[in-house]
Nucleic acid binder design. Sequence first.
RNA 1: CGGGAAGUGGCGCAGUCUGGUAGCGCACUACACUGGGGGUGUAGGGAUCGCAGGUUCAAAUCCUGUCUUCCCGACCA
Length: 438
Amino acid sequence: MRLSRYFLPTLKETPSEAQIASHRLMLRAGMVRQGAAGIYSWLPLGHRVLKKVEAIVREEQDHAGALEMLMPTIQSADLWTESGRYDDYGKEMLRIKDRHGRQMLYGPTNEELITDIFRREIKSYKDLPKNLYHIQWKFRDEIRPRFGVMRGREFLMKDAYSFDMTAEDGVKSYNAMFVAYLRTFARLGVRAIPMRADTGPIGGDLSHEFIVLAETGESEVFFDEGFNDFDPMAADPRDGTDLQPVVDQWTSLYAATDEMHDTDSAGAKDKALVQGRGIEVGHIFFFGDKYSKPLKAEVQGPDGKPVAVQMGSYGVGVSRLVGAIIEACHDENGIIWPEAVAPYKVGLMNLATKDEACTAACDKIYTELSTAGVEVLYDDRATGAGAKFTNMDLIGLPWQVALGNRGFKNGIVELKNRATGEREEVAIGEIVAKLTNQ
RNA sequence: CGGGAAGUGGCGCAGUCUGGUAGCGCACUACACUGGGGGUGUAGGGAUCGCAGGUUCAAAUCCUGUCUUCCCGACCA
């Protein structure tokens, strides 16, 4: 993409409403713009990142056997009355009336809706297990939205729902999601640690939060440094092996957020305990028949008798993750994207746009990279070189390629790694091959 | 919802106390120079000062109401 044709409104100064790093950087890098408190438009650069995060979440869900579908954002209040949560949910739920005066709501979550779909279509134990998910916008009318997309009111969430005949099978479904989450966050380029969680209003007795570690995270966390030795990609939910040992390993070490932290517990006395900060990006629950009973989500067992199914739900804050990744990956100059979610892999800068030969060389590199399938953002604007460097550091593409008169005379470009800051001179003729293999 | 701040060109701010023709930096437009870390000059465009009402000869400035945004707390993907 040529920057001269792109829509990338970067800001030199930070808008006064943004306080934390990810919010400041998302505004400055031209990724999002605020519509109302906690509600954002995603501009092209931010949208690309959001879609990449979404794609990785989707791949790992599919890989773990979950089935993608799509439920609406607007729901009828009826199902919520039936589950008893219409009154319980409180002011966090955005309630609206349609033209006929029917009570509707903008979905804050989808347990009721998915359970209704399930109970209408699935009648036999032979159809189990099932794990259905969707990636959809939710709305929770938070008292105080803040931190940009990290705690917005409107947010993109992946939520999956598992249905099993027995609690034992339900735990297997839970474990598959547990492993899928380990893999998802590792692929996104961040370190996430599962922590035993309070089940809160969703209920149930088995639940873990996945916390991305970031120095500027919103909550304080305590965890065993033994987590460093675990490989999140070691287990595969699809190869048919028992995942319980993997889950046992990841839950054997102490890990807790400050509100769950208990200095008196045995694990907390471990010498290997370290303190850090983190951001919750995923939360999984196994809650048995909490919703299937009141909503009568039953199947017939082998004996012909109806049984309420065992359910679990599994959320990932997709839009929140974009902010969380930035919190974990930035410096004083801007964002440092992990390659898997970077909006473009390479930022190519023409530092001598008035020099026809140099420009032709840049154009050639741009064309060849594009043809080779490398995502490249090409700064071909007639602005000063300093502005280009500063802007590239801000938007944080993993690789920067700079070509100006100086290098052109000697037949070299400068290649810079945004994360390490390392610069290297590469022959013009070799840069494409080098980036293609990188 | 309790406590606290703030709304003035796109962004960051001054002006408000003490009422008297709306200002600065950045960004933007044109031209020239410049071109390896947000460069320089000249000339421009753009604001009913959040909104409504009131006081006054006169309101960004004083009074009343209201909306919005941000921060701390309780709540949360």
